[in-house]
Design a protein around this nucleic acid. Structure first.
Lengths: 220, 220
DNA sequence: GTCTATACATCGATAGAC
DNA sequence: GTCTATCGATGTATAGAC
C-alpha cells in the first residue's frame, strides 16, 4: 500500500518540523534531506525549490482549516455556539498539525511579502471572513456587545487561540476541549467573578454559556 | 551634541527594523550596513558579531519592559486596575518600540534555544511573574474567577495584547488608550451583551470596570 | 528515484591600509 | 572609524552516472 506520493508527503512532514523548530530561513535543504534520509540533491526530484516545499506545507494546512471551519459553523446555532465551535476547531487543528500552525503563526508576516505565497494569503482572508461573519451576526442579533468593535474581538481571540500552540501540550491533563471551553468562557463572559461583575449578589449562572463540558473541580 | 554611542544606537535601530521586517536569519550584515550607510566590515568595529547586534536590540527592549511594568503595577490599587495598567503599558511599549516587539514575538522561540540569549529568557520570566502575581492576587481577593486557571488567563491576554503589534496602527483613529480599554473590557467583562449575559433585563453598568476613558459613540 | 560531484552565489567575519 | 579586499564556510540548485 505504498503510494508514489508517500515520498513527497514524507519530505513535507520532515520539513514542517524543521521549519517550525528553527524557522524556514534557518533550515537548510541539507537538513531536510538528512531528516528524510536522502541527499539534498534528491529533494529536487520532488520539488523544484525550497520555497515549493514551504508552499506544500502551508497549502495543505490551510485547506484543512477551511474544511474544518465549514463544519464548525454548521455545528452551532447561536453566534456564541459558533464562536465556541470555531475556537474548538482551531485548537483541534493546532493539536493535529502543530508544526504548520507554528510556522504559520511565526512566519506569515514574512512569507506574505513574497508573491510566491499569494494563495496562502487568499486562504487566510477566507478564514478571517468566516470569523467576522459569525461575530457580526452576534452583534446584530443582540448576543454580543455593540459598544466594542467586532474586528477587535476577532483579532484578540484569533491571536489568543492560535498562539496557544506555543504553550499548550495536548497530551496532558489540560485537554483541548477544556481549553476551548476556558477560552470561550473568558472571551464571552470575562474573567471577573460574579460578585465583582454585578456589584450585587445576583446569581449569573451563565459563566460557561456554550459548553456542555464541566470542569472537574474548581480550584482554590 | 553627537556622542560616540550614537553610531552604535544607529546600527541597533536600523538592524531592529530589518530584523522585524524580514526576520533575523534572513537579514544579512550587508543589509544592515547598507541601511546604516557604511560597508559591512565597519559594523565589526562596533559589534563583535551579528548575534551581538541582536542581543543589543533585545536587551534594551526588555529593560524598558521591566521599568514600565514596575510603574504600571504601582499605578493601580485593585487587581482589575492593575491588569488594565499592564495592558496599557504593554501597548504603549509596542507603540514606542514596534520593531523589537515584533522581533520578540516572532522569534523568541528560536532565540531562546541559543545559550547566547539566556539573559533575554531571564527577563521574560520576570515579566511573566509580574503578570501572574497580579492575576493570582485577584483570584484570592475574589475579583477574578476561581473556576478558571490563572495561567490560562495570563497566556491568553498576553498573546492577545502583544500580538496586537501586528495589526494595530497607533497613529490612526483607534488610539492605544482606546484599544487598552477594549482589551481590558473584553478580557474582564466578556463580549456577551448585557441581556445575553444575565438572561434578564438587569442593568450591569459595569461593562468597562476600570477605565475612565469613554468611547465616543456606540456603533450600530 | 537516488547518488556523486560540483557550479555559483552569498554568508559572516577578518586583516591591514588609510 | 571606515574603507578595500578577501578568506573560508555554507547556501541553493544543477548535471549526469547509476
Amino acid at each position: 500500500m505504498i503510494e508514489p506520493q508517500d515520498r513527497r508527503e514524507l519530505i513535507v512532514s520532515c520539513a514542517a518540523e524543521l521549519f517550525a523548530r528553527r524557522s524556514v530561513a534557518a533550515t537548510t535543504v541539507r537538513e531536510i534531506a538528512d531528516a528524510v534520509g536522502v541527499l539534498s540533491g534528491s529533494l529536487y526530484h520532488h520539488f523544484e525549490s525550497k520555497d515549493a516545499i514551504v508552499e506544500a506545507v502551508l497549502s495543505g494546512y490551510l485547506e484543512l482549516i477551511r474544511a474544518q471551519y465549514r463544519q464548525a459553523i454548521s455545528s452551532g446555532k447561536t453566534p456564541a455556539e459558533r464562536v465556541h465551535a470555531l475556537v474548538l476547531a482551531s485548537l483541534k487543528i493546532a493539536e493535529d498539525q502543530p508544526y504548520p500552525t507554528l510556522i504559520y503563526q511565526n512566519e506569515i508576516h514574512y512569507l506574505s511579502e513574497s508573491p510566491q505565497f499569494a494563495a496562502v494569503q487568499k486562504a487566510a482572508e477566507e478564514v478571517q471572513n468566516t470569523w467576522l461573519k459569525v461575530i457580526e451576526a452576534g452583534v446584530r442579533d443582540g448576543s454580543f456587545r455593540k459598544d466594542l468593535p467586532a474586528r477587535t474581538f476577532y483579532r484578540l481571540i484569533r491571536d489568543a487561540v492560535w498562539l496557544s500552540v506555543r504553550w499548550h501540550r495536548p497530551g496532558g491533563k489540560y485537554s483541548t476541549e477544556q481549553l476551548a471551553d476556558d477560552v470561550t468562557s473568558i472571551f464571552l463572559s470575562g474573567y471577573l467573578s460574579a460578585s465583582t461583575e454585578a456589584r450585587t449578589a445576583k446569581a449569573p449562572a451563565s459563566k460557561a454559556p456554550v459548553s456542555k463540558t464541566a470542569r472537574a473541580a474548581a480550584k482554590g
